[in-house]
Amino acid sequence: MRKRRTSLLALPFTIYALIFIAAPLLLIVVYSFCVSPQNGVTLTLEHYKKFFDFSNPVYLQVLWRSIYIAVISTAICLLLGYPMAYILSKLRPGLRQVLSVLFVLPMWMNFLLRTYSWMSLLEKTGLINSFLEAINLPAFNIMYTQWAIVLGNVYNFLPFMILPIYNVLIKIDQSVIEAAQDLGADSMKVFGRVILPLSLGGVASGISMTFMPAVTTFVISKLLGGGQNALIGDLIEKQFKTTGNWGFGSAMSVIIMVLILLAMNFTSSYEKDREEGGQLL
């Protein structure tokens, strides 16, 4: 009886969440099927047809580019991040604590400022090129290309890859590693057969935590990618901020949500496994 009454404490939040979390998402779905949602409800598939128009695949190309850039960025994050997480996890606890704070630190610095700072580093006359010029090396011009977006993504989301992997790695019981050695595994095999499989849960959450912001970003593409490399995020932003075609913008938001759901479905099977396993002592 008393428990029930205490659970009423969640009521204000539940109401708030229904209005500002559940209803808005529902609205997106409804709007995506409306002709011009600002002026009443007339159902249509027009927006989705426009997006998936194979005879004029401009939007599909943008979607493809977004996925392509996000996949590459995520892969680079994984390749750079896993070794870093592994190195961190092997340090003694005190140093480990300090260094992991240092990794989080840039992440909490205003992300627009950091991205903007890359502009001054990457520009034709920027710091990197001045430096390269000074030591007589050819200039490095990736500003306003897809690679600049990849770099911005990797820079901004690398900590999202490192931290979950690191968190899983430090939880692996030392005795499990000893058990593998005891059964005949040398250090390569200990890594390949025990540490790596046990850390896949962290890899999975790292992938979803980097892929999602990378595939939906519009800031990084706008600042570093210039005009020619618009991503799906840029398209959505444009519908709501300039064109005013909310129906089409909603439809693309739904498409992005489906994409994310698919990606999470792919990774969460791993994460669930690990959660179960993690309970074992």
Binding site: D173, E178, V194, P197, G277, G278
Partner: peptide, 15 residues
């Protein structure tokens, strides 16, 4: 080594 160990907390491979 030609010895094997049963660990205190089993140390089974959860994967």
């Amino acid at each position: 080594r030609e010895v094997n160990t049963v660990f205190q907390k089993y140390a089974l491979f959860t994967h």
